[in-house]
Design a protein around this nucleic acid. Structure first.
Lengths: 152, 152
DNA sequence: AAAGATTCATTGCAGATGCAACAATGTCAA
DNA sequence: TTGACATTGTTGCATCTGCAATGAATCTTT
């Protein structure tokens, strides 16, 4: 009898499918990270992203975070409202353009970020450690996937 | 003046943070894939996963798919119900163990999968093409991230 | 200056999600 | 056999999400 011809349709395996694997890996990492943040600091990943961006950028608008952190503006708005209610973020109207909301960290917000960031950096370091030399390869692959879309 | 010492806390950049990048890349790929599936076939990613697993495994239970496709059982249950309502999947009670639901593809379900899989395979091929040699590196990194958790 | 177009942030809404509760069924030891 | 415990699938519920509609402010064009 002839050798069995490989049939990519009959042999299709979801667990070898790249989009599925990518999603499953991201979900697992996110879950572990979110769990740590929720337990230790009581904040969500969306809130963490807003805090991290405010830490880096100072006083910015919702639109700024939407653009730079790739979050829906409604998501940013809601995360910012929760952070404001918790006392970590203040909202103010921009005098030069009264449509804009100026988000900035409060004193408590800065103190929280000072505690958050070492945990995040350590989390990333653990991840890179478990990846070993594959970490750089992963960075390169993600850079391709995250590159701006071709317009064709 | 001395050279500025790199300060990982002050310099923290969300867009260089591995968990964030991994999530953003997975979200982008998933969104593109889901968009194509929704437009062409009217199904969601959860439904696609159930179909793919049924294609590979034949007649299985909800619990089987939960275990092998890493989906919450409620998610599987709801996806299966939608697929049943659409005529692609049939549910039957397992006579040997009446707690189990036997899910299997209907004739229409098999026909749909025959159209779905080439699209998925082509999508993956396009992804790998844009990654070039980095595709294998990505596979290796994802294998690490997806490896069963250490128990320590 | 005024009308229309554009931008910004919030909110309503529909759909998806995860968790826990639940009912139905099965297992196993006494 | 019976009664405690485990497993399976569905559903209720609270939450999150993205999209679209909205209201407020600004810009543009005439």
């Amino acid at each position: 009898m002839p050798d069995a011809a490989p049939d990519p349709i009959a042999d299709f395996d979801l667990n070898a499918f790249l989009p599925y694997r990518l999603n499953a890996a991201a979900a697992r990492v996110s879950r572990a990270f979110a769990e740590r943040y929720r337990r230790e600091f009581g904040i969500s990943i969306a809130e963490w992203r807003v805090l991290a961006h405010l830490h880096a950028a100072g006083t910015v608008s919702v639109r700024d975070i939407e653009a730079r952190a790739a979050m829906e503006k409604s998501k940013v708005s809601r995360a910012a409202s929760r952070l404001e209610a918790a006392g970590y973020v203040s909202k103010a109207v921009n005098d030069a353009d009264r449509r804009l909301v100026q988000l900035s960290l409060t004193r408590e917000g800065r103190a929280l970020v000072a505690r958050l960031l070492p945990v995040a950096i350590r989390f990333q370091a653990e991840l890179r450690e478990s990846l070993g030399p594959r970490a750089e390869a992963l960075d390169a692959a993600l850079a391709v996937l995250l590159a701006p879309r071709r317009e064709g």
